[in-house]
Simulated scan of single mutants.
Amino acid sequence: MIGLWDTTGNEVVKALAAERRSAGGVASGMALTLIVVVDEKRVREAEAAATIAAAAHPCRLLVVVRSDINGERNRLDAEIVVGGRLGPCEAVVMRMSGRLALHAESVVMPLLVPDVPVVTWWHSEPPDEIATDFLGVVADRRITDTAQAADPVEALHRRATDYAPGDTDLAWTRITPWRTLVAGAFDTTAAEVTEATITAPPTDPTAALMSGWLRARLGISPTLRETTEFPRMRSVELRCANGDELELVREGGMATFRRTGQNERQLPLVRRPLGDELAEELRRLDADQIYSQSLEAMAGESGLDDRPAQRVHVWRDPIAAKRAEAQVGAHAGPGGSAG
């Protein structure tokens, strides 16, 4: 491991090259570059998840920690690890402060592995518009996590409005086991589904996407039965045209499966570690059309797959925006009106 304090981007590139030479063939044959955007308080959690994902997908891991963007002094601290505590990958953890934090791409771009896909993962509240973050614009795949937003379901609607092919969200990844069990229930029948009910908290983004998936695949409008007794989606019930009823109910790490005329069964429905969820999304580096169709159905949008995959960077200075808001407030005066 190499630690560089109050350094420059050029020094980071040189140190990474030196560490690669000393590590020999430990980190060869990289499949992608994974950029992680994370808050300081979640760095260790993000590193643990990325380590699991890197075991399945050898990559160059670039962790970007932005802090104190209002600071007067630009500073870059970097930690370089090749084939060490972060698994079989080349990792650079970069802590940026001051105006440099708003231009992280100036440090990140020279570190991208040539001729391999780039994936950006925000382990924080997703940006309202990905185009305002150059680290998202440069990526072939973009992974958000609406569960970390103040209003997760509203954040999903923002993802639909802002969608471009190549986007995905970990709320979608978390319903893969649910979708697998529901689809498997129809291996032995061709009965048409006419109604569906999902029991979940009203703020659960996984339930919203499950509703969109059922709507997109079956052409029905699921009913959400709201509950506050459980922190996440509790059950999915389906009613068929032939009178059969199917129900999946989460019970800890298992799901109870009930179907008309059949014995009750227990099926695995384990909540996976964050690293396993991330690894699943890294398996595909093209656009996920099933996700986009489900998101489209959930949000009432249309034409998501027809949008351009490549975004154009939109520069917005958050510091200038705050100053403008402060000036408006000052001119408005204590009465709250600008006259």
Rank of each mutant, 00 (worst) to 15 (best):
G3I: 13
W5E: 13
V12K: 00
V13R: 09
K14C: 12
K14T: 15
E19F: 03
R20D: 10
R20K: 10
V26T: 15
M30H: 08
A31K: 15
T33S: 01
I35A: 08
V43R: 02
V43P: 06
R44W: 10
E45Y: 08
E45K: 06
A46Q: 02
E47T: 09
I52Y: 05
I52T: 14
I52D: 09
A56C: 11
C59N: 11
R60I: 03
V65F: 04
I69V: 12
E72I: 11
A78V: 01
E79C: 08
P88S: 07
E90H: 08
M94F: 03
A101S: 14
L111S: 09
V113W: 01
P114L: 02
D115S: 13
V118H: 02
I130Q: 15
A131D: 12
F134T: 14
L135H: 10
V138P: 04
R142V: 04
D145F: 00
P152V: 01
E154A: 14
A155I: 01
A160G: 08
Y163Q: 03
G166N: 05
D167V: 02
T168D: 05
T168L: 04
W172G: 01
V182H: 00
V182S: 08
F186W: 10
A190N: 15
A191Y: 01
E192R: 14
P201A: 05
P202W: 13
T203V: 10
T203I: 09
T206Y: 02
A207E: 05
G212A: 00
W213E: 08
W213R: 02
R215M: 12
A216I: 00
R217V: 08
P231H: 00
M233K: 04
R239N: 07
C240F: 13
E245C: 13
G252W: 00
A255L: 00
F257P: 03
R259G: 11
E264V: 11
L267Q: 09
P273D: 09
A279H: 07
E281Y: 06
Q289D: 14
S292R: 05
S294C: 07
A299S: 14
G300I: 04
R307A: 04
A309Q: 12
A309F: 06
I319T: 12
K322N: 14
K322P: 01
Q327S: 12
V328R: 10
G329N: 12
A332N: 11
P334A: 11
